[in-house]
Structures are given as structure tokens and as C-alpha cells.
Design a protein around this nucleic acid. Sequence first.
DNA 1: CACCACAAAGCTGTCATACAGGTTGATGTT
DNA 2: AACATCAACCTGTATGACAGCTTTGTGGTG
Lengths: 235, 235
Amino acid sequence: MGELTDPGGGLVSSTVGAITRLIREQDLMPGDRLPSEATLSRDLQVSRTVVREAFRSLAAMRIIELATGKRATVAPIDHGAMSLIIEHGVHTDQISIQQIYDVRRTIETRIVTLASLRRSDDEARIIREEAEAMRASIATPEELMRHDLAFHMALARASKNPVFALIVGAFQGITSQTWPIGWRSRTSAEGREAMIANHEKIAEAVADGDPERAVAAMSQHFDESVRALISAGLT
Amino acid sequence: MGELTDPGGGLVSSTVGAITRLIREQDLMPGDRLPSEATLSRDLQVSRTVVREAFRSLAAMRIIELATGKRATVAPIDHGAMSLIIEHGVHTDQISIQQIYDVRRTIETRIVTLASLRRSDDEARIIREEAEAMRASIATPEELMRHDLAFHMALARASKNPVFALIVGAFQGITSQTWPIGWRSRTSAEGREAMIANHEKIAEAVADGDPERAVAAMSQHFDESVRALISAGLT
DNA sequence: CACCACAAAGCTGTCATACAGGTTGATGTT
DNA sequence: AACATCAACCTGTATGACAGCTTTGTGGTG
């Protein structure tokens, strides 16, 4: 089948390279099946152990998908791995929550602009429904949070740029861990109401195809969120 | 030591969770050593094979670092895994180069603003040096590209937000694969000269602490880059 | 001819064992 | 106290084994 490059850098890492190259050279698309472990083991002249560890590496990055009994398949892009990477950065004090929010603000400000211009009617409806669902679940924070995250994800998708969706998704893991802090710091009913109203404003502006208003509302949302987190004592 | 959650979702995946939890609960910081494979195998009641595959998964995301003979250590954040994920998305036609550039423009526009306000004198010097190095290596594209990438990375670092640096780094893998296309499409000496001059303008503005001028120059840089790529036939 | 049931072959998940070679820490020497 | 040496420990890779799931092909049935 082919040679392994970098024979000194560890067999597994070479094998990861070989499998990646195989995907490229054969133009495999998401869903396509890879050779079996035994086949790769034979073709690449390494033990099945090595092939398996290489598969695990690629699966961790969501480049391939593994399943019992089935062959490994090429995976669609997914933010799962990125989510874990970000969480690790935060938990080891290499990234602060405020820095996350600064990046989110940058990204999501652009997202609402694009979403306002490009959203389909279906997407506008879904975005509005998530905002409504937030209001409906104001008494159950767990569910409220789920709709909040879904709202931002729906916006990202409506931007029609999968990379924006990927990045927004990458932040959702850590966000779901810090969201309750911000929510608890909004002690008054008005504070909580205002947060939901902000989402509705964003949804309306996007539905109306009004980027300026959408950006303004999103900006206000982030001002308010960051204020809430700071007042809760987050650096 | 502890129980494994989700016992039905695959032993390896449970073990990854257990190790992650261990890092959190013990507040391990980058550089700290993890238990040996044998120890984890005993404590988690799984075979060493499973522990190794779990380690490989975490190492693929750069959450831990492995080395022969040494114990695994907690890793500093690194964009290596994200780079591979993005490359995979592009090679499987799930992400287009233009979409990458749209995100980069969004991110890097914000970066130059922050860098203008926050850069240290050292950082300003490094940024300028990379721009100068670009001009000096105008005849050797390979080297020129290296300095171009280093220039953008230095800017990202000067923003003082590691998440921006992470994202910029994540794009460098695929960028280094498409950069030559853009360069070749700049057929005239003036075109090539203009590209380098743009970088110099950015460096000057950042050194002067002038965010508006920096943003304008960065914006122009992206306009020009995207034009170059399109004229080379990239969708 | 189409369809279904079923058995065989193939594949992955996990475990145990073995050994080469790198790393670390303790021991003893100067 | 500094250093050299070595034993214990640790990781990287290979092999073999087996349970359980999936795919495939076969042949029978309507």
C-alpha cells in the first residue's frame, strides 16, 4: 500500500499519517469505509495494536468513526474534540472564561450579520422557536440553558459557514459548565427577563434581515452576560 | 480509585472520562505527571490495552503528552489537533477555503485591534521583524510563507488572548497547503510587493498603537488575498 | 423471479503475555 | 556533597486468543 513517513517518530504516529494520506489519496468522503484493521496491519507492516491505536487517535479528533463489528468510516466534521480541548484549557487555567467570551463576542457578532443576510425562512423560524422555548422554560434552568445553547447554534448554522458553527460548538462544552454561574448571578426577575428579551430581539432582527439591529442586540447580550459573570466573581 | 461512568459506551471511552476526571479532581496542571498505565489499569479495573488506547485518544487531542519510558504528562494547549480537524474538513469538502478566509478575517480583524492596544514592545518588534523577513525572502516562497504564518501568529499572541492564538494556529495547517496557490496567482512583481507592503503597514500600525489603521490594513490584506485565491480558481 | 431466513465469514473490543529499550531513583563510592 | 552505577519501573510494539456484532452469500420459499 505505501510507506510510512517519519519512521523514527513512533510507529503509531506514522500510521496515523499513513491513514490520513490514504483518506486523501482515495478521496474518501464522510461515510466511506476504511480498510479493516487486519488489512492495514498487513499493508503497512505494523501490528494490529499499532493500527488500533492510530484509529483511536483519529477517532478522538472525530476524523473517523469507530463502531463494534463495523469497519471504521470517515466522519463528518464535529465539534466534540474541540470542545474537550477548550475545556481542558480552561480547567488547567490556561484560558479564562472572560477570554472565551471575548472570542465568542467577536465570532457571534459576525454570525448574526451573516445570519441576517443568509438565513432561510426555516432557520429564522427555528431561531425564533428556541427563543420562545427559553421564555417558556424560565423556571427550569437546565432546560433553559439547553435552549440558549441551541439558539446560538441555530444562529451559527444560519450563517451558512460551517466553520462558525464548529467554533460555536467548540465553546458549548465549557459554556454549559459556566452558564449556571451567570444565571444564578441574575438574582432579580428583571435581570432574567432581560436576558431572554435580548434573545428575542436578536431572533426578530435576524428574521427581519436587519443586520445592524441584530448586531446591536447581540452586543448588548454579551455586555450583559459578561457583566453577570463578573459580578459572580469570575476573573 | 473511582468508578467508570457510562459502562455501556465502550470501555475506552469510559476510561478517557475517568482520566479526564482524575486530571480535574487532582487539579493537575500542564507538566504534571499522570499515573502509570499499570496503575490505572489496576485502579480502573481494565486491561492495559484499554488504558493505552485511552491515553492515545487524549494525546491525539493534545490533552496529555506521551513519551517513551516517561510517564504521561498533562499538556499545554496546542493547536495541533485542531489543525488536523480543519484540514480534514477541507479535504472532505465540508469546508471551503473561502469559508476559512471569512472566519480568519473576522478573527484577525479583532486580533489587530487588541494587539494594537495590548502588544508589548517586544511583541511589536517581533511582528515587525517577521514583516521584514518576508520582504527579505521574497525570492524563496517556502521561506516567505513561513514568515507570513509567523507574522499572523505573532499578532495573535500579542492580542493576549490564547484562544485567538489557538484559532489562528488551527488554520495554519490548511493555510500552508493553499498559500502557494495564492502566491502563484500574484503573477506581477507589483502584486507580490503589495502583499508584503500590506504586512508592513499592519506591523507599523500595531507598533504605533493605532487600531483603526491596523484594522484597515488587515482588511485590505484579506480583500487582496481572497481576490488572489478567487482569481486562481478557488471556489 | 423476488424475497426471506440463516449460516458462515469477517470485523472489532478486550484481555493476557512477552520483551526491547528508555527513564528514574536509590545506593554506594569517592 | 557530588557523582557513577545499577536495579526497578515504564512505555512501545508484537502476538495470540476469544466474545460478540455485522456483513455477505447461500439456498430455500412463495
